[in-house]
Design a protein around this nucleic acid. Structure first.
Lengths: 191, 191, 191, 191
DNA sequence: GATGAATGAGCGTTCATTCAT
DNA sequence: CATGAATGAACGCTCATTCAT
């Protein structure tokens, strides 16, 4: 197994275990076992468990951001851009349910708080696209005149809630439902 | 200290510690100490830590349900009932931030999954009021023709997201913002 | 086993193992086993291994200081006081060889450096008696006019070296040899 | 890098690390890194860590012995020979503090005990010069009539103790102090 | 010969749970 | 009943040593 492969096996094992069992259910020894490496090997790739968890988070986030930007209709009206982002996010998570569950575990843990703070305060680069969209939406009187934080919440809140239900098997999100969910979110923020 | 008092102290200590520090930061010995009882005493009231955590969850949920029903405008239009529930929920969490944070910890843990499943499937009593409201809303063509699960998500998702931001200090929810947030949620579900 | 007993068993097991095998040869699990307690039990008495090691050091040192003061001929000439301290120290270590070997391990480790520094600089109380003796010896022209640090070294150096040889079985220190060793040390510092 | 060079780099790196940080602070990987070789390479020169440590000890000791013999006044009186050895030892350690600190680490560890035993029992060659000197001193009634072991201790004990204080910075050994320390040691052993 | 990635036994420490008092 | 000292399995992590390249 080549070096990048081994790293990937570790990251994948961690993603699976943490997504499925939470941080408690993912001791380093188990991650190592599932990755097919020795326990000490993980520490050649990651300084410690925290670093592994944070690096994994960054990787997942990066994949998502780059996915969201694929086909982003920069020149189209705000509504279409909004719908693109919303439905893309849903689609991404539907194809990568472990990523979704990992992010949920991450955000709801000591690790995640700092990141949430940074994101909201605009320190995270990837979020620019959202902030710009919302700022434009507000200033063009297309969206409700509410604090950005609230508009964020009105958009992500329902999307993520719907995703949770999909992941848990309470609904089956198909293209139709994805579109309708996106529209409903738009109704929540539009003026 | 009487028996119910002692139980209450334990439950309260657990609520505080878990809400503030997460499950990791709430070892039984610390809960016992903060409750002013011996470590072994907890096990006279709760079979084990899991039971304590689940019982605590049920208590918090019960308080919330009963609070939501106070002043519930049973006879008023769907919209008003919806807004009552949404803004009441926000108000409850604003005055009981520990309850909110505990629920978040709980839901995002192995404990929480089973409960979410039960609730959605209609096994939880308290949810009846929501289900009835949404079913009526859909059948009267006042709400979007979407699966109940989606309508739930469109309502709770943003509310809880907004609450998180309030708890984390990113916004300050006042009466005006509470009302506007409720309205925005309504826009999301209404036809 | 009563609480003080258990603490004593732990301290004793640590003393034995560290004295005989060094810090490497004294893992907490082994200390616990030899003490006849569970591994976690040690942590009820000592915050961590460092604290155990330092506390043990302080206990040993206290025993020694109090032993040295027994029968200290405060009013007798410097020479007699010096000989009292030297021979008492030898006698103490002969009856408590584990204490001697523990101190050796301790001083020759990261733990011990700080203590040595403090002692030399006169921050340790117990050393007062030595410093006073040497200062008086120098100012009365009974001892050589050398820095205190050197006089300390001229006294303790040979004593401890002789002790090491006794402990290792290279010589058998009897009363006669103890007396002669003390005298030889005195010759080293006296004018 | 030639074979002897590589070996020397390894030995040197081990000396530095162990002298400065103790055995705990000198993992094989770090020794290898500082030596500029691969971790596995060390094992081509030394069977294992113990062997490396023991070989290093022998090298240091050899350097010292050969240094002590430089200018040894074979024909001069016992006193002068004694002073030569004592002050040469001090001077050697002052110019080679790492050697001193390494020896201290070594002697105060499981490794060191065997060597001390050997030396004292006369199995080590280098010690001959000391033993001869002391035996002559005793038989000529120039030194005290004490066991050789004690005379050794009376000589080395204070010297090494003084060195420790110098290394730790408690005193600054200059030529004057070196001479006086040697004389004081002589007073300890002479009749 | 030289390498350094991989290994896994072993470390110090935590904490849910038990049980003698 | 209530206690809290005692427990030991399980954790995250280190490092001497091996071996495929």
């Amino acid at each position: 197994m080549s070096r990048p492969d081994k790293r990937h096996e570790i990251v994948n094992a961690a993603l699976e275990l943490i997504a499925e069992q939470g941080f408690h259910g993912a001791p380093m020894a188990l991650i190592a076992e599932r990755a097919g490496v020795g326990a000490g090997t993980i520490y050649r790739y990651f300084e410690n468990k925290d670093v592994l968890i944070n690096d994994l988070y960054l990787e997942v986030e990066k994949k998502i951001w780059s996915d969201l930007l694929v086909g982003y209709p920069m020149k189209k009206p705000i509504r279409e851009r909004f719908l693109h982002l919303g439905t893309s996010l849903l689609r991404y998570f539907i194809s990568h349910p472990l990523d979704f569950r990992y992010l949920e575990q991450f955000h709801n843990s000591p690790y995640g708080v700092a990141y949430r703070r940074d994101r909201i305060l605009g320190k995270k680069e990837g979020c620019d696209i959202f902030r710009e969209l919302f700022e434009e939406g507000v200033s063009c009187h297309v969206m409700k005149d509410l604090p950005l934080v609230i508009l964020f919440a009105m958009s992500f809140g329902p999307l993520l809630a719907v995703m949770r239900d999909h992941i848990l098997g309470f609904i089956r999100l198909d293209d139709d439902l994805i579109a309708k969910t996106g529209e409903a979110c738009w109704d929540g923020v539009r003026r």
